[in-house]
Simulated assay, not measured.
Amino acid sequence: MGAENLAYALTQVVHNFGAAAVLGGAVFALWPASRLGDGRQFAWLILLAWGAQILSGGLFGVTSFYYYGEMPDLSSVAMTALVVKVAAATAGFLLAAVYLARGKEWGHAGVKRSFQGLAALATLALTAAAFLRWFS
């Protein structure tokens, strides 16, 4: 077993669990019955999961650079998907942070829209990940 394969696999584990938590946390808070009364707990989970997504995503690039001396050569489709994924992750992290900082002041509709936005951003990031994976 090569050290680079172990590094990629462990990074992928963190990335996969982060992906599950950003989408699952938002969807579970909204459906099948709203759990937005406990929204702050879900927002903390989602914030930490977005952080894990951002850090592990960067670690993929660092691992490539460390073991191969260069960043992965990405096609234009994969590069676009990466930009979309990074933008979605950044926006999701910021939305969760803003909700945690100011969400107590928002009405039910604002909180619901926040979690719908978090679910949409997670869906966008996961969709972009598929294009990044298969077009790189």
Rank of each mutant, 00 (worst) to 15 (best):
residue 7 A to W: 09
residue 7 A to L: 14
residue 66 Y to N: 06
residue 114 S to R: 10
residue 3 A to L: 09
residue 129 A to C: 01
residue 120 A to D: 06
residue 30 L to Q: 08
residue 109 A to M: 13
residue 53 Q to P: 07
residue 112 K to G: 08
residue 35 R to N: 14
residue 111 V to E: 00
residue 108 H to E: 13
residue 72 P to Q: 12
residue 90 T to D: 03
residue 30 L to T: 03
residue 19 A to H: 10
residue 128 A to K: 15
residue 5 N to C: 04
residue 13 V to L: 11
residue 111 V to G: 03
residue 20 A to S: 14
residue 63 T to S: 04
residue 67 Y to D: 10
residue 111 V to T: 00
residue 55 L to F: 03
residue 114 S to A: 10
residue 96 A to F: 07
residue 103 G to A: 03
residue 106 W to S: 02
residue 17 F to T: 06
residue 123 T to E: 07
residue 130 A to T: 12
residue 106 W to A: 13
residue 49 A to P: 00
residue 28 F to Y: 11
residue 71 M to T: 15
residue 103 G to C: 04
residue 112 K to V: 04
residue 1 M to Q: 05
residue 122 A to Q: 07
residue 104 K to P: 10
residue 38 D to E: 04
residue 73 D to G: 15
residue 67 Y to T: 12
residue 100 L to N: 03
residue 26 A to G: 06
residue 26 A to W: 05
residue 86 V to I: 15
residue 112 K to S: 09
residue 50 W to A: 00
residue 121 L to S: 07
residue 44 W to S: 01
residue 41 Q to P: 00
residue 110 G to W: 06
residue 30 L to H: 01
residue 29 A to P: 02
residue 43 A to Q: 00
residue 4 E to A: 15
residue 33 A to F: 08
residue 120 A to N: 07
residue 69 G to T: 13
residue 92 G to T: 08
residue 50 W to C: 06
residue 1 M to G: 05
residue 104 K to W: 06
residue 89 A to S: 11
residue 13 V to H: 04
residue 31 W to V: 15
residue 87 A to V: 14
residue 95 L to E: 01
residue 110 G to M: 03
residue 85 K to N: 05
residue 98 V to R: 08
residue 57 G to C: 11
residue 129 A to P: 02
residue 130 A to L: 13
residue 111 V to Y: 00
residue 30 L to F: 04
residue 12 Q to V: 15
residue 107 G to A: 01
residue 127 T to Q: 12
residue 25 G to T: 05
residue 108 H to D: 09
residue 36 L to D: 00
residue 15 H to D: 12
residue 5 N to Y: 13
residue 123 T to K: 04
residue 28 F to Q: 08
residue 7 A to R: 06
residue 76 S to G: 09
residue 42 F to P: 01
residue 26 A to D: 06
residue 118 L to N: 06
residue 21 A to E: 02
residue 105 E to G: 02
residue 50 W to G: 01
residue 115 F to L: 13
residue 12 Q to G: 13
residue 136 S to R: 09
residue 36 L to A: 04
residue 23 L to Q: 10
residue 27 V to R: 11
residue 9 A to T: 09
residue 116 Q to F: 11
residue 48 L to G: 02
residue 12 Q to L: 14
residue 125 A to F: 03
residue 50 W to S: 00
residue 108 H to Q: 08
residue 69 G to Q: 07
residue 94 L to K: 08
residue 102 R to E: 04
residue 94 L to I: 14
residue 72 P to A: 11
residue 111 V to L: 02
residue 134 W to Q: 15
residue 56 S to L: 08
residue 28 F to G: 02
residue 54 I to W: 02
residue 67 Y to P: 01
residue 42 F to T: 01
residue 18 G to S: 11
residue 75 S to R: 13
residue 108 H to P: 08
residue 40 R to Q: 03
residue 124 L to P: 09
residue 61 G to R: 05
residue 129 A to Y: 05
residue 94 L to T: 13
residue 26 A to N: 08
residue 41 Q to N: 07
residue 124 L to Q: 03
residue 53 Q to G: 04
residue 24 G to N: 06
residue 114 S to K: 07
residue 90 T to R: 06
residue 113 R to C: 09
residue 117 G to V: 11
residue 71 M to K: 15
residue 2 G to L: 15
residue 60 F to Y: 13
residue 39 G to K: 01
residue 5 N to D: 15
residue 110 G to E: 12
residue 122 A to T: 09
residue 85 K to A: 09
residue 24 G to E: 09
residue 55 L to I: 12
residue 46 I to Y: 01
residue 42 F to M: 00
residue 53 Q to I: 09
residue 84 V to K: 05
residue 77 V to A: 09
residue 129 A to G: 12
residue 21 A to Y: 07
residue 54 I to E: 00
